[in-house]
């Protein structure tokens, strides 16, 4: 390979993130739905909901058993792209507390190989309040690194001195815009510059419209922006441009 083409290849795969200031710290949002914190080499992903289909299957609803595979494939491609020193999984990593125990061997191996040579932090969530079994990584309820605090559920406060720097998931934000009489709905990041709510990453996770009352406790009305996940980029909108479901 010539120097030029190798240079071009490198250029082509360099990840493009949407840079953003949260509590004064620069982080990058990526269209795959992960957050990249270059200064700390931390990659954050939220609401993986691994083994969701099998969780339903236990109740007699035989959803296709491919969600864990798809989610891990996507995660692995994001990790390959950014090669982080540390991965934070921001809660609801498994759809239920037994999920990590049910994880089929092939996916356990896949996840374990992703954890090699890097720090891995499981933040607990409402679906998985306990540490996963037979997997590496440290389990915490929440974690603060510098100006940023990582927890699953946003504190139900809008007092900026308390919530500044909060990175959370749980709500599965999604936004809807209307154009030419058609409306389009996508998962999204939502932020007011003080806190950031991450989109759900799991293959079978739905979304909750950011106009839902649940978000009233998180952001002041209309004083936030979203970044909708597109096929190869993010689409920013201010809250006033969004419509409800």
């Amino acid at each position: 390979m010539s120097a030029l083409t190798s240079h071009l290849t490198e250029f082509a795969i360099a990840p493009v993130c949407h840079d953003l200031q949260i509590n004064g710290e620069t982080v990058g949002l990526h269209e795959s739905g992960i957050l990249w914190w270059p200064d700390q080499s931390v990659l954050v992903v939220s609401d993986l909901h691994l083994e969701k289909a099998s969780s339903y299957a236990r109740r007699g609803l035989m959803l296709p058993p491919y969600d864990t595979g798809i989610t891990l494939e996507r995660l692995s491609s994001a990790i390959e792209t950014f090669d982080p020193a540390c991965v934070i999984s921001l809660g609801d990593s498994f759809h239920d507390p037994d999920g990590s125990d049910r994880l089929p061997p092939v996916y356990r191996a896949m996840l374990t190989s992703l954890q090699l040579n890097r720090e891995w932090i499981w933040v607990t969530g409402n679906h998985d309040p306990i540490a996963p079994v037979r997997l590496c990584g440290e389990t915490v309820d929440e974690l603060t690194i510098g100006p940023l605090t990582f927890r699953h559920e946003p504190l139900q406060k809008t007092d900026r001195s308390v919530i500044a720097g909060e990175i959370c998931g749980h709500l599965h934000p999604a936004a809807r815009v209307r154009r030419y009489g058609r409306s389009i709905r996508r998962s999204c990041f939502a932020t007011d510059g003080y806190r950031l709510v991450m989109p759900a990453f799991g293959a079978l996770t739905g979304g909750l419209n950011v106009n839902d009352t649940a978000f009233h406790l998180v952001f002041r009305r209309l004083q936030f922006s979203v970044f909708m996940l597109g096929n190869d980029r993010l689409y920013p909108f201010s809250a006033s441009r969004l419509i409800g479901d």
Binding site: R179, Y180, R182, G193, Q223, G230, Y235, F237, S238
Partner: peptide, 25 residues
């Protein structure tokens, strides 16, 4: 009648383009 055949991402892009990321006050 609804017009068919427009790629959804194009609509999103168009909708997004005529806006600047407002108000992150």
């Amino acid at each position: 009648e609804p017009v068919y055949g427009e790629a959804i991402d194009d609509i999103l892009a168009e909708a997004a383009e005529d806006l600047v990321l407002e108000a992150m006050e």
